[in-house]
Amino acid sequence: ALNRGDKVRIKRTESYWYGDVGTVASVEKSGILYPVIVRFDRVNYNGFSGSASGVNTNNFAENELELVQAAA
C-alpha cells in the first residue's frame, strides 16, 4: 500500500501528469474510488508555472500509480 510522502509515477494515460512523478499527500481509507491524493511540482494547464492558480494535486487509484521511492 502507498503511504504519505511516497514518490509515485503516474500511469493513467489520459492524465496531464502521465509519466510524471508526484508525492503522495494523503491516502483516504473510506473506500472511495480514487483514494490517493498526489501532489506535483508543476501545475496543470489551469494555471501558469509559478502561479497559485493552477491545480497541482489530483486523486488517483492505487493501480494507476507506480512506487518510485518509499517515504523515509
Results as ranks from 00 to 15, higher is better:
R42A: 10
T13N: 08
S53R: 04
G19Y: 04
S51E: 14
G5Q: 02
Y34L: 09
S51H: 09
F48C: 15
V24S: 02
E28Q: 11
T13H: 09
A52D: 13
K7Y: 06
F48G: 15
A70W: 06
L33A: 12
G31V: 10
N46C: 15
A70L: 10
V38R: 00
G47H: 10
V21Q: 04
K7M: 12
G22T: 02
N59S: 12
K7N: 05
E28C: 14
R4T: 13
V27G: 01
L2K: 02
A72Y: 08
A1K: 12
N46L: 06
P35A: 08
F48A: 15
A71W: 14
R9S: 04
G47M: 04
A72Q: 10
D6E: 02
E28F: 08
R12W: 06
E64F: 03
K11D: 04
S30L: 10
S49M: 12
N46R: 00
A61S: 11
G47E: 15
A71S: 08
V24A: 00
E14V: 14
V24P: 01
S49W: 09
S51F: 05
E14K: 05
R12P: 03
E14Q: 07
S30V: 11
V68H: 02
I10K: 01
A1V: 12
I32G: 14
R12A: 11
I10M: 01
G54D: 04
N58A: 15
L67W: 05
G50T: 08
L33I: 08
V43G: 06
N3A: 11
N46F: 09
R39D: 06
E62C: 14
R42L: 09
N58Q: 15
I10R: 01
K11G: 04
I32H: 11
R39I: 14
G50D: 14
N58D: 15
T13Q: 09
S53H: 11
L2P: 05
E62N: 08
G22M: 02
R42W: 07
E14I: 06
Y18S: 05
Y34T: 07
D20I: 06
T13W: 09
L67F: 08
S26P: 00
E62V: 12
G50R: 00
W17F: 03
Y45A: 15
V27W: 04
N46Y: 08
V38C: 06
S30C: 12
D41K: 05
F40Y: 00
Y34P: 08
S15Y: 00
Y18T: 04
G5L: 01
L65T: 14
V21L: 06
Y45K: 15
Y34V: 04
K7T: 06
A71C: 14
V21T: 08
T57Y: 11
A1S: 12
T23A: 03
S30G: 08
V38N: 00
V36C: 07
A61L: 07
D20T: 05
T57R: 04
S53N: 12
K29A: 13
R42K: 14
G31C: 14
N56Q: 06
S30F: 11
L2C: 14
Y34A: 08
E66W: 03
T23H: 04
R9L: 11
N44L: 12
G19L: 07
Q69K: 07
Y34C: 13
S26A: 14
V38A: 00
N59F: 07
A25N: 06
V36Y: 10
G47R: 01
S53L: 12
E66A: 07
S53K: 11
I37L: 15
T23W: 06
L67C: 07
S30N: 12
F60L: 02
A52H: 09
V36D: 00
A61H: 08
N44G: 03
E14W: 08
A72K: 13
E66R: 03
Y16S: 05
W17C: 07
G50P: 12
N46S: 05
A25Y: 07
K11S: 05
T57D: 04
T23L: 07
N56F: 04
V43L: 09
A52R: 03
R9E: 03
W17A: 01
V24D: 00
E62R: 10
A61R: 09
G50M: 04
R12I: 07
K7S: 08
K29F: 07
A52G: 12
E66I: 12
D6K: 00
D41Q: 12
E66V: 06
G19T: 04
N44K: 11
D6T: 02
E62Q: 09
K29E: 13
S30K: 11
F48P: 15
S15L: 10
R9C: 14
R42G: 14
D41T: 09
A1H: 14
V38W: 00
G19H: 05
N63C: 14
Q69F: 07
N44E: 14
N44M: 14
E64W: 02
V8Y: 00
A72R: 10
A52I: 09
G31D: 13
G5W: 03
G5F: 05
N63R: 08
R4E: 14
V27N: 04
D20K: 05
K11H: 12
R39A: 10
I37N: 08
I32S: 12
L33W: 04
A25T: 12
P35C: 13
A70M: 11
V24Y: 00
V21F: 04
F48H: 14
G31W: 08
F48W: 06
G19K: 05
V43C: 15
R39H: 09
N63S: 14
K11R: 09
G22W: 08
L65H: 00
R12T: 08
A61V: 04
P35T: 10
I10W: 00
N44D: 15
A25G: 02
T23S: 05
Y18N: 04
P35I: 11
K7F: 08
S30M: 09
L65Y: 00
V27K: 03
G5T: 02
A72P: 12
A25F: 08
N63P: 07
Y16C: 11
R39L: 13
G31P: 09
S51D: 14
V55E: 08
L65F: 02
T23N: 03
T23Q: 06
K11W: 09
F48K: 07
G19C: 15
A71T: 08
E14N: 09
N44I: 10
A71E: 10
L33Q: 11
I32E: 13
L2F: 12
N63M: 08
I10G: 00
D20V: 08
A71Q: 10
S30D: 15
A70Y: 10
F40H: 02
T23Y: 09
S49K: 06
F48T: 15
K29P: 12
E64R: 01
S53W: 05
R9A: 03
R12Y: 04
F60K: 00
K11V: 08
S53Q: 13
Y34Q: 08
L2M: 08
R12G: 03
N59A: 10
N3Y: 08
N63I: 10
E14M: 06
I10V: 14
F60H: 00
R9I: 08
I10A: 01
G5S: 00
T13E: 10
Y16R: 01
G50E: 13
D41R: 05
E28L: 13
V24I: 10
D20M: 07
S53V: 11
V55N: 06
A1N: 11
I10L: 15
A71K: 08
G54T: 04
D41N: 05
V21R: 00
V43H: 09
E62W: 09
E66Q: 07
A1D: 10
G54Y: 04
A70V: 12
S26K: 11
R12S: 06
D41M: 05
I37V: 13
G5K: 02
I10C: 15
N58W: 15
G22L: 05
G54S: 04
S49D: 15
V68M: 05
N56T: 07
V8T: 00
N63L: 06
N3K: 15
V43P: 15
K7I: 10
L33D: 13
R4S: 11
